[in-house]
Design a protein around this nucleic acid. Structure first.
Lengths: 104, 104
DNA sequence: TATATATTTAGCAACTTCGTTAATTGCTTA
DNA sequence: TAAGCAATTAACGAAGTTGCTAAATATATA
């Protein structure tokens, strides 16, 4: 299920930090790795987990691979989950209803 | 960090299903366990993970222990995270801003 | 072609999680 | 007190995750 890999991907501090970096701008794998005290192979694996969950996309550009955040998928999955758990109350209420209408 | 245990707790399908059950009503540990094809001790451990993350609260009532969902904490943490990653766009924008104002 | 840089894949050890059964603790009631 | 039900803790093995280094793959450039 999509929501499984989604929450699995978010259950890691370095992966959430990668998302935070990518929220500001696209970055190459190397640029991301340079921001962590961790080997490039370890970062590469985190990136593939994030990509498998649909949270980021990658594109090869010459000898570099550029990663970018999939904001829509992140926000929609998060909102859908919140709606499933809290259908009738809480701050997400209005936005969730709007989203549900849009998708039906 | 709180967000660590929060996402760790959500990274489990049975735990997310427990939250879904509790979104409708309070339930005792035994009532929750009876809804799963899993031993009571396993459910008990899942419940303690959820409680450690602040997602549910428990109260002993006679020989039973009743669990209930902490909706506010769930929605606020989810919204806070979405706001951190997607500060300027997406369907959560308006609600997130509202929440940020309210908490400052 | 040969060399250098960027990235990913492979193989490995340490650690954590998950579910099981058995034992323990907490509460109620005869 | 003793018996019974509810729930948790303990102890265990199976399986997965995480990080490392070394090796392989891609692309650019002399």
């Amino acid at each position: 299920m999509a929501v499984d890999s989604f929450f699995e991907a978010l259950a890691s501090r370095p992966r959430r930090e990668i998302l935070a970096y990518l929220s500001a701008q696209e970055l190459t794998a190397g640029e991301i790795a340079s921001r962590f005290a961790m080997s490039a192979p370890a970062i590469s694996r985190h990136l593939s987990v994030l990509e498998g969950a649909g949270l980021v996309s990658s594109e090869r550009r010459g000898q570099y691979v550029v990663y970018r955040l999939n904001k829509d998928n992140l926000v929609n999955t998060l909102t859908g989950f919140a709606f499933e758990i809290c259908p009738k109350a809480g701050p997400l209420k209005r936005e969730s209803r709007r989203l549900a209408r849009k998708e039906s």
